[in-house]
Computed example of a mutant assay.
Amino acid sequence: MTALPTAAPTRPAGRLAPTSGPFTGAVAAEWTKLWSVRSTWWTVLAGALTMAATAAQLAIYAVNDNTDDDPTVNPGIVGAGEIVTGSLELTQYVVLALGLFAITSEYATGTIRTTLRCTPSRGRVLLAKAVVVGAATFLVGLLLGGIGAAAARPVLGEWGRAPLGATARDVVASAAYLALVGVLALGLAAALRGAVLTLTVLLALLMIVPLSLQEPGIAVLTRIADAFPGVAGNHFLTGDTEPYPAAVGLLLLAGWTAAALALGRWAMARRDA
């Protein structure tokens, strides 16, 4: 007898073939979680207000320095992009909350268990969060850079300039810096789990320890401070050539970010949710 051809198995109605891999799905889930909570939008608003206020204040300082009676502090014409990068010294501490709370809030509420049940690979979870936090903080950085330049330029008046190319470069550099700092915060938060402890460590790494090392004016200590993420990022933003090129500053900051993620991955693998 001739065997009858068998029909190909049919997929149940309403079930579509998967069109993306598990990592893409994890990224989509993390993106949805990040932008579906009000704290994210409040953070963006707080960052915008902080950037606008800080940029305007720095612009006022630049005008005052140009119009006082002491020529030794006269900065001359100041670019709006320079004001934007200078404003990050304060604004970054608002924006890095996006990276910090992306995981500490889940540990605080216990929802990290649900996340790990949906995506059992802890490395995949952390990497997906890093992609989302990096992309989100970069986009927010572009927005804040534009706000800072718009706030600073009219205040600077005759002492300011805002060439499109240079300003755009400073805004993009600022966004890149914020993205790396945001992911750095995520990695540390994955390892430390607590928001307050993570913020304390970030303040120490980005500001307190480098300033303490630079204060005595000892060359060896200053060189050590130059390797810290906040100082390296500042060299990148200002385009310094000493003590190393701006590109090296970016690489140092990226190295700190990668190390923080590795520490977070190690901690997540060793401890229960």
Rank of each mutant, 00 (worst) to 15 (best):
N66H: 11
V94T: 07
R124Q: 14
V73I: 15
V27I: 10
T111N: 04
G76H: 08
Y61V: 12
I83K: 07
N74K: 14
A29Y: 11
A102E: 02
A102W: 11
S87C: 01
T91P: 07
G123V: 13
M51R: 02
A97V: 15
L88W: 14
W42L: 12
T54I: 06
A59P: 03
T109A: 08
G79K: 02
Y107H: 07
T114Y: 07
V95K: 01
V125C: 11
I83H: 02
A108I: 07
G21F: 07
T32I: 11
A62M: 13
L49E: 02
G99H: 09
L100C: 08
R113G: 09
T43Q: 06
V95R: 05
E30I: 03
Q92N: 04
T109S: 14
T109C: 11
A59L: 01
I83Y: 04
T32Y: 10
A62K: 03
T111R: 05
G25K: 10
P75I: 06
N64F: 12
V94E: 00
D69T: 12
T50H: 04
A102Y: 02
S39T: 04
A80H: 03
Y61G: 08
G79V: 06
E30V: 05
A46E: 00
Y93W: 15
A53V: 07
G110K: 04
L90Y: 14
R117L: 15
L88E: 02
G76T: 01
A26T: 08
A56M: 13
T104N: 08
S36W: 12
T43G: 01
Y93C: 03
V37N: 01
V78H: 00
T24V: 12
G86V: 06
A97T: 11
F101Y: 13
R124D: 10
F101L: 14
D70N: 15
V44E: 01
T72I: 15
T43P: 10
V125A: 05
D70E: 10
P75K: 01
T43Y: 01
A52S: 03
L98D: 03
E106D: 02
T72D: 13
A55H: 06
A102I: 04
A55C: 14
A56F: 06
D69I: 14
L58G: 09
L88F: 12
T111W: 09
A52L: 10
A55Q: 03
L90R: 12
S20E: 13
F101S: 14
G81W: 07
A52G: 02
E82Y: 11
P22K: 03
E106R: 03
T115V: 10
P22I: 07
V37L: 05
C118A: 15
V78T: 11
V27C: 05
P71Y: 02
T119G: 00
E30N: 09
V44S: 07
V95E: 01
F101R: 07
S87A: 15
A46S: 11
T111H: 03
A46T: 11
W41R: 04
T50S: 13
A26N: 07
P120E: 00
S105H: 09
P120I: 02
V37G: 08
V27A: 08
A29T: 15
S36L: 14
L96I: 15
G25V: 04
W41N: 03
A53T: 05
I60R: 14
R124T: 08
F23W: 08
F23C: 05
L96Q: 12
L34N: 01
V73H: 10
G99C: 03
R122F: 08
S36G: 09
W42V: 07
S121N: 15
N64I: 06
T119W: 09
A80T: 02
S39A: 10
D69E: 05
